[in-house]
Amino acid sequence: MLVQIIICAYGIFLAGKVERLSLQDYGIKWQKNDLPKLLLGLVIGIAAFLIVCAPLYLTGAYSLASGSYAIEDIALDFILFVAVGFTEEFLCRGFLLHRFLRFGPFKALALSAAIFSLLHLANPGVTVLSLVNIFLAGIFIGSTMFATNSIYTAVGVHITWNWVQGAIMGIPVSGSTGDGYFVTNIVSNNTVVTGGAFGAEGSIACTILLTIFSVLLLAYAKKNNKLQYFQPAI
């Protein structure tokens, strides 16, 4: 986990050397109030995913059964998703989004989310709707950063979104299957509703709810002048 995070940060550091920028110019900085924001992100990630998949269980499209994961398996998966959360957020909401700030914060958010979506193009079970939803996930995660002025909120959201989805609920994480504390079985044959092999991230419920979450967060960020912190450094 640590090696992966360090390699990612060092790569961005080298890019900054070429462009005569620091990691801070890419939003990668640690301030004394970032720990509460990281913890807030962890809570948001859990709540957001449970809200997204709740309609699938309540309508009977999904059913829940006992899985095979023990506590140590859940803990090991958490470490895995910490590495994924930090590296993907440092790259997409750190380096890329801040690199695109020359076009304004909203365009930068959209462009970085589009690249984030394309990074999942080869994932198992990918569909057009799932790619749209990964784009929306990028918008949502970036919106949490805008709303709190901390990339670590976005990191926290990314970590627990994946962790609850895979290690707890036993749902494929962006098409990647595995065990979990529970096992989620697909009952409905309607892949637009269930997301099919890609998992809940490929469902129409995910589309609707991520859109709502993002609109609310961006409205909050704009109303409270949070976007002033996201000015182009390049």
Rank of each mutant, 00 (worst) to 15 (best):
T148R: 06
I46L: 11
L23R: 02
N33F: 12
Y57G: 04
L64N: 10
D25C: 07
V52R: 02
L21M: 13
A219Q: 12
G27A: 06
L35P: 00
L131C: 09
L80K: 14
N133T: 06
E72P: 00
V3D: 05
E89W: 00
I115S: 04
V52Y: 04
G142K: 07
F135A: 05
K32A: 13
I186L: 15
L14G: 01
S174L: 01
F230N: 06
I139Y: 02
A205T: 13
T148F: 06
F116N: 01
L35I: 15
L119R: 07
V192G: 07
I234S: 05
L64K: 02
P36C: 02
L118Q: 04
F116M: 02
G138Q: 10
F103M: 08
R102G: 10
I28M: 13
L216G: 01
I212Y: 04
N123V: 09
E89F: 04
I44S: 07
A154D: 01
Y229A: 15
G104R: 11
T184G: 08
V183W: 05
I46K: 05
L109G: 04
L76P: 00
I5K: 07
A9V: 14
I44K: 08
R102H: 08
A154H: 03
L91T: 10
G67F: 14
V43A: 15
S130D: 03
T211H: 02
L227H: 05
N225I: 02
N149D: 10
F78P: 02
K222R: 12
C53S: 14
W30G: 07
P172T: 04
I186C: 05
L129V: 11
V183H: 11
G67I: 12
E19Y: 10
T87Y: 04
V18G: 02
N224I: 08
